[in-house]
Amino acid sequence: MNLKNYPRPFYAINQFCQPQCTELAGRSFYFDMDGGYDYELKVLTGDTCEWNIAGEEPKKAVYECLKGDDTTYMFDFDIVGAEPRQNFFFCIDLEQSLVTLVRCYIGRNPKFPLLVASEYDFGAIRVEGQPLPKKRHCLTGEMMGTTVEWHWNITMFTQHNYYSPAYYRITWPQYSSAEGSISPNFEVLAASDEISQYVKIKDKMYLYCLTEEMMERELGDSSPFRSNNMIFLQNYDRMYHVGRTFGSIMMDGKVVPCRTMFGSFGNPVRLEYNWLTAENPFTV
């Protein structure tokens, strides 16, 4: 049998997602956060945890965890019962005893209620017998100038240009299946530039965060994608990333939650000079 024809389900950006990691089960963490509210996290099982702001009652959640390298984890869960929806994304760095928390909220913008708003908080992990580190993960401009091709599934790859501390832009060649699957949404936009944030975790490891904000502002319900926040834990030592989406999508005319775990394999790519240097029409 030609296993190309194995009866697999439809995959989009989730085919090359690495599997859920359950090795934190049984561990507890105290996150000393610069934002003023410390967090406690108790990982109960391979997919459940309890979390709370220090001093408050623990709340249960179902989590997802992927590894960016041997000691760096993305640990992600939706807040149970939150309406509109909320999501907490922790980047737990056991090598440096550091943590980054990205809190994502839907419903904060009265004009664009599906827009995902993000808050970033940096902190350190308390480890018995060791002083709290003074260093932090931090917002960075170090990724500026990076062009990279990401392979998401057996037919789809996209090319990213991280050129500004506030934006990125995306393209793909015609022989990528992105041409048929996602290009119609971009063709009606003035450009593919989209709102981004960049966080340095360590040498060659970054959190790259984007929100489909321009798409939501410009297209609204004429696009199936409704302001997803995507966080990539990018490993430029090994050239792959893991990540997740949090947002909404249109399905049969209705807005439904969109939560996808994803991953992809990368390689350097040479892109057209004119595209790389084209003006971003969404900025002054």
Partner: peptide, 11 residues
């Protein structure tokens, strides 16, 4: 212009 994408040939 620095570019983080690389061929990781050491591996």
């Amino acid at each position: 212009i620095p570019n983080l994408a690389n061929d990781a040939k050491q591996y």
